[in-house]
Amino acid sequence: MNNNSVTPSYFEFTLFSDYGSLRSLFFSLCLLIYMTIISANAVIILTVCLDKSLHQPMYIFICCLCLNSLYGSAGFFPRFLMDLLSDTHFISRPFCFIQMYVIHTYKTQELNVLTVMAYDRFVAICQPLHYHSKMTFRTVLFLLILSVLYPVCMLTHFMYQSSNLPLCGYKLHRIFCTTWSVVQLFCVEIPGNSITGQVIAVTTIFIPLFFVLYTYLRILIVCRKSLSEFRGKVLQTCLPHIVTFVNYCFSVFIDVLLNQYKVDEVNPLVIVVLSLEFLIIPPITNPLVYGLKLPQIRGAISGFLRTHTILCSLE
């Protein structure tokens, strides 16, 4: 990497190509995906907020999961849609760091909320007599604030350290700004970068992962000793969370693998598909899984639709 006397004030995404007549098709498809993400998550959020019977910890956590999906999508799609129609793909350094901040806090907050949801299911199934005393409104609020503030503080510390470091390049072999791709362009190493990276990896990925595995191991032990009817109810409430958690872990695993390989040697189409996986699949599947699988949410949505249909017919 050659040192430059002047630090670039912008980055260039190198994976965008001239799609010619297909540009409008790709733009329309991505816009449809974005509108689907907004609509599906907004339906779940409005349903939980408007239906008082859903003002319970489990549904509040689902609502927060959908809010986080909207947050992460807003950090990626508007800029991505602009790049699809643009002939140049430059992004200023401040906007790159903002995008990087939003996307990475989205990923960590997603995992944190899924971990809190696992704890909620653990208390509800393994300690049902203590559920209402443990999962109070104050506890739920504290867990949600902690889930949001922890990644915010960690990423803010990284941004503060790296915001003024000199760059020896400006080309990002990505379709959006990622921490790893930007770090590779720094002319100097971030002080304590390796130690900080290890701490972040352990506290943000491995501890939540092991905690979720532990809670479901305890839930399985309880289910083995219970009646089949009870096991059916447990499966009904836990299956959406298991599907969501496995899907998210798969997405993060792909993203980690993508950062470990020399992306210059990988097919650009493969990089684009893998990069989009965690930004598209979880925000779409989360509201669909919870909306279709949980009868309480499904019933509330059906009730709102029937009420709307009746009001429209009366008009």
Rank of each mutant, 00 (worst) to 15 (best):
I91H: 05
N112A: 14
T108V: 05
T88E: 15
V113E: 02
N112F: 10
N112K: 01
I103R: 07
I103G: 13
H104K: 08
R121M: 12
L114V: 00
T88I: 11
R121A: 08
M117A: 08
L114Q: 01
Y119T: 10
I125N: 07
F97Y: 09
F90K: 08
Q109M: 12
T108F: 09
V123H: 02
A124W: 01
V113I: 13
P128V: 05
I98M: 11
L129S: 12
Y119R: 14
Y119C: 07
T88G: 06
H132A: 15
C96R: 04
Y101I: 00
T108R: 14
H89F: 03
F97P: 05
F95W: 15
N112T: 02
F97L: 12
F90T: 06
F90D: 08
A118C: 12
P94C: 03
A124G: 04
E110D: 12
P128A: 04
F95H: 15
V123C: 03
F122C: 14
P128L: 08
F97R: 00
T88P: 11
R121W: 04
P128I: 10
H130S: 13
Y101A: 08
F90Q: 09
I91E: 08
Q127K: 14
C126S: 09
A118D: 06
P94A: 04
R121N: 07
F95K: 15
V113S: 01
D120S: 10
H130W: 09
Y119M: 13
M117I: 02
L114H: 04
V123S: 01
F90P: 00
Y106P: 02
T88L: 12
A118M: 05
M100W: 03
V123G: 00
L129E: 13
Q109R: 13
D87A: 04
V116G: 02
A118S: 14
V116A: 12
F97N: 06
L129V: 11
F95P: 03
F95R: 15
D87Y: 11
Y131W: 01
E110K: 09
A118V: 05
H130E: 13
S92I: 10
N112M: 08
C96H: 05
P94G: 07
T115Y: 03
I125T: 12
Q99K: 03
F90G: 00
Q109V: 11
E110Q: 14
V123W: 02
I103V: 01
K107Q: 15
M100F: 03
D120H: 03
I125M: 05
A124S: 14
V116E: 04
Y106R: 11
I98Q: 14
V102G: 06
A124F: 10
D120R: 02
R121K: 15
V113H: 02
Q127L: 13
V123A: 00
E110P: 00
V102A: 01
T105C: 13
I103S: 13
C126I: 03
A124P: 02
F122A: 12
C126F: 01
K107F: 15
F97K: 02
